[in-house]
Design a protein around this nucleic acid. Sequence first.
DNA 1: ACCTCTAATGTTATACTATTACATATGTAA
DNA 2: TTACATATGTAATAGTATAACATTAGAGGT
Lengths: 137, 137
Amino acid sequence: MSSIHSHSKKNQSLTKNQRIVLDLLQNSGEPLKAYFILDSLKKEGLNSPLQVYRALDKLVELGKIHKIESINSFIICNNSNCASNTAFTICERCGKVKEIKNKYLKDSVSDLVKDNQLEITRYNLEFYVLCKSCKIN
Amino acid sequence: MSSIHSHSKKNQSLTKNQRIVLDLLQNSGEPLKAYFILDSLKKEGLNSPLQVYRALDKLVELGKIHKIESINSFIICNNSNCASNTAFTICERCGKVKEIKNKYLKDSVSDLVKDNQLEITRYNLEFYVLCKSCKIN
DNA sequence: ACCTCTAATGTTATACTATTACATATGTAA
DNA sequence: TTACATATGTAATAGTATAACATTAGAGGT
């Protein structure tokens, strides 16, 4: 299932470290911590925290992953191009994290920006919730 | 202007450690880091990180201060009763932090909640901005 | 090809942030 | 008073992240 990618100048391919970190986050789908990533990828050749953090930094910069500040974890981006803007729900009971992506949030934020005359460059929104399955049980 | 009876009623129930940490944050008005607080209050008898973190935890729980997750810092609460909900702007250039407090934000969040059928227990919103003075220069 | 510049790598050491564990003390209510 | 919850003090340790330095790999221009 591998395909040949055509890379433009701006869309350069990932390096080995960046790729294996991204792959791990992609396959996991849930937020992972830097040192967990390090442990998981020891066999792939990652030896030091810095290698992980550098890959994570780059991937965040590229908008491919997000950092969830309140739990010091990183998660694959589920939107196509949210850049550095992030909005998550985090279940207070089970810790499950979901990325919020809807037009309504965008509108709310834009309105908020206008209302406060803010020049918002990016945002990080963390909503603590009781998720559906935890609400039932 | 100093008086032995100068403690306001709402802070009476705090313990000594909680009080000196709160006072420092109140007088500072800007976000402070735990170990900075520790250093600042060595002369008041604070000796270990744990003493600081315990005081901070309690003050957060009481809604008197907030933690700003993305900078691992704590700031005095500027609202009267926002409990565990926090919304801040953080200047990307100078690092200045301001707490957002207006009805509009509340409305935006409530609408968002309805729209997503979320049961939000609390939230932490961090908006990175270019503040007014940094915008000028 | 060569040169050059930038970005990424590898490694060690260290800084920064936060909690565990345990013993002791203090405040509050029955 | 007794009992219980909460707060304290202290030491050790866990968890998160970056500094500094030497080296290597890649992309672009000539």
